[in-house]
């Protein structure tokens, strides 16, 4: 499932490059949104949907219960 969802995100990134609407100013969605803009608004909606799938099916559950390695580690990190 994970592979399919990640694949869909890559597909979405590929579909972002919509050369087929590049030269179209005549087609309007709802009578006022130019198709090139409507398509990209659709890309944003699709992104929201795909990231929902990611959250449901690909969530790194092992990170849900991360705990500090020591009580002192609350704000004293980074002393390499």
């Amino acid at each position: 499932m994970k592979k399919i969802i990640y694949g869909l995100i890559i597909l979405l990134a590929v579909l972002h490059h919509d050369w087929w609407w590049w030269d179209d100013s005549d087609t309007l969605v709802f009578g006022f949104v130019p198709i090139g803009l409507a398509y990209h608004a659709g890309i944003s909606l699709a992104a929201g949907f795909l990231w929902t799938l990611v959250v449901i099916y690909c969530w790194p559950t092992e990170l849900d219960d991360v705990q500090p390695v020591s009580p002192q580690a609350s704000n004293n990190g980074g002393h390499a």
């Binding site: 991360v66 004293n76 990190g77």
Partner: peptide
Amino acid sequence: GKRYGYTT
């Protein structure tokens, strides 16, 4: 950040 206490 949580595990090792990073702030930045």
